[in-house]
Design a protein around this nucleic acid. Structure first.
Length: 475
RNA sequence: CGGGGCGUAGCGUAGCUUGGUAUCGCGUCUGCUUUGGGAGCAGAAGGCCGCAGGUUCAAAUCCUGUCGCCCCGACCA
């Protein structure tokens, strides 16, 4: 741990530069010729694939099906739900030409697909027997952002968007919470990130939604990052788009709707929650490479064949393993894979051959110890499990240490300026929310599910408090 | 959209004030020696100096315009 990689700016010196350095040096992405559109390099894309694998299993367990809808929406379709249009219109990219001709109907590159799903659902939902419809789509969307940062905010980003239709309001509301739980579980089991779960305020909720729920993560610099959202729409869109079905009782009804999504922003979350001054630190179960094997003096007899043997044993046991037998020096390889956040490094050299052992280095805490090779599968399994647990605990400890209660407006300002969440009682008025934003630049992250009142007045206006709410500066 | 930087080899840069052969490091390629924390030596390849005009015998350098990128704000996943 005390050996620093000099090509990466330290976190304390300049967190923004550190972030950019890690993105590039760990070969997660590259900039393209067009601002805000990045290239997801193989190592970065592989992290996304692990997230996809995890979520596809969870989605299918809960009865969802993957579909694919077009990337363009014609303008008249997009105009149908007015709150939604007002929210998204300013950041739409619009195609106006095709085949060298001006288009009669302009085509909007989807910023999200509610309209497309609603239009399709209006064709295929006719009877209560057609419900629920539980669809999910993996795709990219485009939003014309003014300020962009790799993974955190791009003009184009990859995501999944679930869109579901239900016969009853109650079932739709449950779906919204069920999917939020799946995201939360992904944090615990895959990303080693503890999220704060809660509901968005009126000001912060999604354009067109009745309720928006969120998972919020706390970055190492004390800023919050909205890492996933689920929305309950009621039947507003289904009325606007004319989605109707004939119910058991013979009456025509509009179904109730949800949508939910997580994006490649999760990669940014992983980087900023776990990373350190030597680069990326990947949680073991989402890491594209879980174990890297570095042979020492690989030209000496037996070394390379032993390294290959270990690779085969571990691959057979289901681990993602890389053997680096390139002619770079061991020191170079150590630095390289630390920068890339590979959880475990196995070193094998001539000294190890005699007693059938190896050295194993843990990326998260920098410790290195000698292990017997005879039961390497279970050793690796246990070490990966331990790393996951340690990383989750460290992140949780940091989260809990950075949620601070405020009773006065002075305390609110002090806490959000220091970084982390300011936990306060709130009257529920938009004016108080706006005032905090105006003075401190912090926003209401969520009204957490965990509602234990600790005061009876709002620190901003002094009126009676209704909710516990978390404010923080956010990405 | 405001403020601040910056465009010279794949990357990072010097040169620009005072016009005159394109600078250095990293990386890349070849060979030998190395290998338990970013190796050493020797050799080699690689440039419309962001783009377009202008001034000049001569422009990376001076003038005008233009395009793009990065960072910080306001807006958003």
């Amino acid at each position: 741990m005390d050996i620093k990689n000099k090509s990466i700016t330290s976190r304390d010196e300049d967190f923004a530069q550190w972030y950019t350095d890690v993105c590039k040096k760990a070969e997660l992405m590259d900039y393209s010729e067009v601002k805000g559109f990045i290239i997801y390099r193989p190592y970065g894309y592989a992290i996304w694939e692990e997230i996809q694998n995890y979520l596809n299993k969870e989605f299918k367990k809960t009865g969802h099906e993957n579909v694919y809808l077009p990337m363009v929406i014609n303008e008249s379709l997009f105009q149908k739900e007015k709150d939604h249009v007002a929210g998204f219109a300013p950041e739409c990219l619009i195609a106006t030409q095709g085949g060298g001709q001006e288009l009669q109907d302009k085509l909007i590159i989807r910023p999200t697909s509610e309209c497309l799903f609603c239009e399709h659902y209006s064709h295929i939902i006719k009877s209560y027997r057609d419900l629920p419809k539980l669809y999910n789509q993996w795709c990219s969307v485009v939003r014309w952002e003014k300020t962009t940062r790799p993974f955190l905010r791009g003009s184009e980003f990859l995501w999944q968007e679930g869109h579901t239709m239900h016969a009853s309001e109650d079932e739709a509301r449950q779906e919204t919470l069920r999917m939020l739980d799946i995201y939360d579980k992904m944090g615990r089991d895959l990303l080693a990130i503890p999220f704060v779960k809660g509901r968005k305020t009126e000001k912060e909720k999604f354009a067109g939604a009745l309720e928006t729920y969120t998972i919020e993560a706390l970055m190492h610099d004390g800023k919050a990052l909205q890492s996933g959202t689920t929305h309950y729409f009621g039947n507003g869109f289904s009325k606007a788009f004319g989605i109707q079905y004939l119910d058991k009782d013979g009456k025509i009804k509009n179904p109730y709707q949800t949508s939910w999504g997580v994006s490649t922003r999760l990669i940014g979350s992983i980087i900023m929650v776990h990373g350190d001054d030597n680069g990326l630190v990947l949680p073991p179960y989402v890491a594209p490479i879980q174990v890297v094997i570095v042979p020492i003096k690989m030209n000496e007899p037996g070394v390379l064949s032993k390294a290959k043997e270990i690779k085969e044993i571990l691959e057979k046991a289901g681990f993602r393993v890389k053997l680096d037998d390139s002619d770079k020096t061991p020191g170079w390889k150590f630095s390289e894979y630390e920068m890339k956040g590979v959880p475990l490094r196995i070193e094998v050299g001539p000294k190890d051959l005699a007693n059938n052992s190896c050295m194993i280095h843990k990326r998260n805490d920098g410790t290195k110890s000698k292990y017997d090779l005879s039961n390497i599968e279970s050793t690796v399994k246990d070490l990966l499990a331990a790393i996951h647990k340690e990383m989750y605990s460290a992140a949780l400890k940091n989260l809990l240490a950075n949620i601070k209660e405020a009773h006065t407006f002075e305390e609110v300002q002090k806490i959000v300026n220091e970084g982390g969440y300011c936990k306060m009682m709130w009257c529920g008025d938009r004016a108080c929310e706006d005032k905090i934003k105006e003075i401190t630049n912090a926003t209401a992250r969520c009204i957490p599910f965990d509602q234990v009142a600790f005061d009876d007045h709002c620190p901003v206006c002094g009126k009676e408090a209704k909710y516990v709410v978390l404010f923080a500066k956010a990405y």
